[in-house]
Amino acid sequence: MLYDKLKTASRLKELRLEAGFTMEELAKKMKLSGRSSYAMIESGRTNLTTQNAYILAKIYNINVDYLLKSSIVNDKQVIIKPVQLEKELEKEVTYNGKALSNTDIIVLKAFLQGLTSSK
């Protein structure tokens, strides 16, 4: 799909707010001249360069395609914060049509923690 400047701008704002960054912090991380340079990108007044897309993808640990392609539906490297995971696991969770027991959920959490502890 084609690059959609406004969709990218919307995604950038969403990602920034989720991560709790200010525009000034991102401008510094991206080595831009200042907050206004980043604001121009996030508002869609300026195109996001490929170089800046890669920098932002690294900052947010997401796929560059998620920023640049208008048709991708949340193709992040599926990032779930521990708090979000806890909330989701409080609901009834099923896998392959079967509900997970409390023991299954504890094992799942331990498995996920083991995967991420070495990274």
Rank of each mutant, 00 (worst) to 15 (best):
T50Y: 10
Q84T: 05
P82G: 14
V78H: 09
R45W: 06
L17W: 06
I62L: 07
K31I: 12
I41L: 08
K7M: 13
E42I: 10
M23W: 03
A53M: 07
Y38V: 08
T22D: 02
G34R: 01
K7P: 06
A27K: 00
T50P: 04
N47I: 04
L12A: 05
T49P: 13
P82K: 11
N74K: 14
E24V: 10
K5E: 07
T50L: 10
S43V: 03
E14R: 06
L17V: 13
T8E: 04
G34K: 04
F21T: 08
Y66L: 12
I80A: 09
Q84R: 03
S43P: 02
S33K: 11
M30D: 09
R45T: 12
L6G: 10
I41G: 00
Q51D: 13
S70C: 06
E92P: 02
L12P: 01
T94K: 10
K28F: 14
V64D: 00
I80E: 09
K28C: 11
T8D: 04
V78K: 07
N74P: 08
L85K: 07
L32F: 06
Y60M: 03
K91V: 02
I59V: 15
E42L: 10
G20H: 02
N74M: 13
Y60V: 01
K81E: 15
E90I: 04
T8I: 03
Q51P: 06
V73R: 12
M23R: 00
L6Q: 09
K87T: 13
V83Y: 11
I55E: 06
V64A: 03
K29C: 12
S71F: 01
K13C: 14
K5N: 12
N52G: 08
G44H: 01
E90Q: 11
I72L: 11
L26S: 06
I59A: 15
V93W: 02
A27T: 13
S70Y: 00
T8L: 00
T50N: 15
E42N: 15
K5C: 08
T50A: 15
A19I: 02
M40Y: 11
E92K: 07
L48H: 04
V93K: 01
Y3G: 08
L26R: 00
E88V: 02
L85M: 12
G20L: 04
L67E: 03
